[in-house]
Each structure stands twice: as C-alpha cells, then as structure tokens.
Amino acid sequence: MLRTWILFKRNVGLTFQVKGRLSELVVFPISTLVIWGMLFSSGIITRELIGPLLVINILWAVGSHAQGQINMPLLMDLWAREFSEIMREGVSISEYLMAKALYGLSVGLLTLTICALSIPLAFGGGWLELYLLFAPMPVVILTATALAYLFTGVVFRYGRAFGFLSWTGLPFIIMLSSPYTPISTLWYPLQLISYLSPFTFAFEFVRSQELRWLLWGAIEAALLFGVCYLYLRFAFSYACKNRGLDKI
C-alpha cells in the first residue's frame, strides 16, 4: 500500500510539474458546461430535454478524465522508458495500476466536483440534475477504469503504438452507448451492441430516472472490470514472456 501511495504521489507530481497540464483537468468540463449549460439556462430548448443531455455530457467528461488519467501517465512512462526502471524496483503491476486507478478516480471526482458546483451556481440547475449526476457515478467510474485496464492490456499485448486507444477508445465506446437517444429507438442489432457497454445503462437511467438501469449497469460494470483486469494480467504475462517490459 505504501508503494501505491508513493506511485500515486509521483503521478500528482508529474501532472503539476508542467503547470499547463492543469488545463487538461478543466478545459473539457468547462467547455462542456459552457456549451450545454448555456442551452440549459437560456430556455431555448426545454429544461426537460436539455437537462439529461447536460448531465450525460458531464458524465462523459468525468468518465473520459478517469480513463485518460490512468492511461496517459502509463503511456508517458512507456514513452519516457521509465516503466521498466520502476518494474526493476520490485513494484508489482498491481501496485502500479492501483496507483494509476486511484489517480484516475481522483481526477474524475475533481472533474465531477467542478461540474456539480457549476450547474446550480452558473446555470440554475437544481437537485434533480445533481441527483442524476451523482447516482450513476460509480457505474461511470468503474467502467472508465475497466476500459483503461483494457486499453493498457492492448498496449502490453500489441505494443505502445496502440496507445492511441487512450484518447480514441472511450469516445468510440460512448458513441456506441446511445448517449443522446433512448436505446429503444436504435436499430435492433445496434441495441445489442449498446447493451454491452455499462455506460448505456447509466445514460438510460439519466433519461428515465428508473433505478433498475443503474442496478444492471453496476452488475455489468463489475463484470467488465473483472474481464478487463484478467485480460490485462494475461497481456502483462504475454509481454514478460514475448517482448520484455523494456520493449513495450
């Protein structure tokens, strides 16, 4: 646990080392809030319609940050070629990833806090929006972490060239998760694909406010996390056997 804490502090240190990187944490949530929040508060579109869209966009921003802040520091360690140096110090891959996950969670929660405070303060949102924002958060963060582990596994298995998944993977999966329309309106085969993503359940909850969606989402997110973690362990063993950790 101590090593995880040391690795976590290093992640924080690396982010704050380049002050400009702090903008990464706020640009996306703030632009999301400005674009969708203005629509929300202006009354151009009805509140019933725009409210869920605002919340879904914030959930997207939080999930994206949680996943990105797990994958990007890992990629930076691979690009800088320090990953193998850390592994040589007897740090286990579980400790290393746990630190990354804690960091991703912290950034996700920070993003959520910024957005949650901004909705009532800047755009006149109420308790309903805050409830719709906080209730699906465990599903969103768990899914984002699972996907971060999946993308990490792909990088371990196929090499650092697949690091592009860190910034393209999650938006692609969100687009398949029926973010803006009820899932029932999708073409049936697409519905089946959408149900594979726990994000779909979180978004359905926001639109319908039915808790059963969250329950199903939590079960699927937990399953997805387990599968992705197993894949990551397999990919790590594969890299140790076939490539060497210094050549990922």
């Binding site: 040391i6 290093r10 240190g13 690396l14 800088a80 070629r81 320090e82 140096e85």
Partner: peptide, 16 residues
C-alpha cells in the same frame, strides 16, 4: 541507457 520522465528534475527522480 536508463531513462526517466523528461520533464522531471533530478531531485524528484531520486526522491521517488
């Protein structure tokens, strides 16, 4: 050819 994070100062590298 051991390498470390390029934007990190030596003090923080060694501290870690």
């Amino acid at each position: 050819d051991s390498q470390f994070q390029w934007s990190y100062p030596g003090r923080k590298i060694l501290n870690f």
